[in-house]
């Protein structure tokens, strides 16, 4: 007779080793670099030669650099605006795509193609498409499309937010589509009997029921927006001037173009802290996300 407890501990002993390969890889290329970046932020290194301790010099110079608040500002601007564009649209589209008609399935197939393209490909396409001399605007002879889209700071920021939305709205719509399909139909039937209209149903059933989905999607959007490196790097390279120089790009430029790995590591530490803080905040907002995973199962 094995009691449940000894049964469990027997199992634990036998399975523990199975976690080891993943743990080793993750420690080696995830945890060690995470600690490493903090250590490197207190050193001086040009990316090639020897690494020298530098005390708090990097921190002092980066924190005093007026470029830093600007980069943080641009990062948050892009994060918040792209969230504000993507969330309502993805919710609407996801709810619509959750319908079971066959044509909506086909709609979804076409809809998700941007998911397949690399950020580099998307950035290259939009760069050509928006070219003020050879792009779509001059080609169609449309004045309002013929702008120096990537050459003026306000416009360039708008373009980045639009392209981000173009790339990721399909993905988030898909998440919402799945969420909506898990809402029991009986809730809508009850609301119908009570005479609630569709708009009312959307706001009093769909949106509250999707609470955890909204948190998941928002977390992915917000933490993901810290990693828009490739898109912005290819599309604007941070320009014009430093109008779209987000933190990730700032880190790359300091580290791999100016060969100042110490200050670049300071930016990296800030990125990690911002990512963790935002993830915790969103988790707090929605209660525990792990609870939602069990509820949804």
């Amino acid at each position: 007779m094995t009691s449940p407890r000894t049964g469990a501990s027997h199992g634990t002993g036998a399975v523990k080793w199975m976690v080891v390969p993943a743990l080793l890889m993750f420690v080696m290329f995830g945890v060690v670099p995470l600690v490493g970046v903090l250590v490197l932020s207190f050193t001086q290194w040009d990316g090639l030669g020897a690494i020298h301790p530098a005390g708090t010099a990097n921190w002092r110079s980066v924190l005093a650099d007026p470029g830093l608040p600007h980069a943080i500002w641009v990062t948050f601007e892009i994060m918040i605006l792209s969230w504000a564009v993507q969330t309502p649209l993805s919710l609407l589209i996801g709810t619509f795509l959750a319908g079971r008609q066959r044509y909506r399935g086909w709609l979804a197939v076409l809809f998700f193609v941007p998911l397949l393209l690399s950020s580099a490909a998307i950035a290259i396409t939009y760069k050509a498409l928006l070219d003020p001399n050879f792009g779509l605007g001059p080609g169609l002879k449309l004045g309002f499309l013929t702008q120096d889209w990537l050459g003026r700071s306000g416009l360039a920021l708008g373009v980045v937010i639009f392209v981000v939305s173009w790339q990721f709205i399909p993905f988030h719509s898909l998440i919402y589509q799945g969420g909506v399909r898990q809402i029991p139909t009986s809730m809508y039937e009850a609301a119908e009997i009570d005479g609630a209209g569709r708009v009312r149903q959307f706001f009093s059933i769909t949106v509250p029921q999707l609470k955890y989905t909204i948190i998941t999607s928002s977390t992915l959007m917000v933490v993901g927006s810290l990693t828009f490196f490739d898109l912005i790097f290819v599309l604007t390279a941070g320009g014009p001037g430093d109008a779209t120089r987000v933190l990730a790009l700032d880190m790359y430029k300091r580290g791999f173009q100016a060969n100042l790995m110490g200050p670049a590591s300071v930016i990296a530490v800030l990125l990690v802290l911002i990512g963790l803080a935002l993830a915790l905040l969103l988790r707090r907002l929605g209660g525990s996300t792990t609870a939602s995973q069990q509820d949804g199962a």
Binding site: G30, V32, P33, L34, G36, V37, L40, V223, L226, T227, F229, A248, M251, Y252, G255, M261, A264, S265, A268, V269, L271, V272, G275
Partner: peptide, 8 residues
């Protein structure tokens, strides 16, 4: 965010 650990 993945990028943050790229230097180490």
């Amino acid at each position: 965010p993945l990028q943050a650990t790229i230097i180490p």
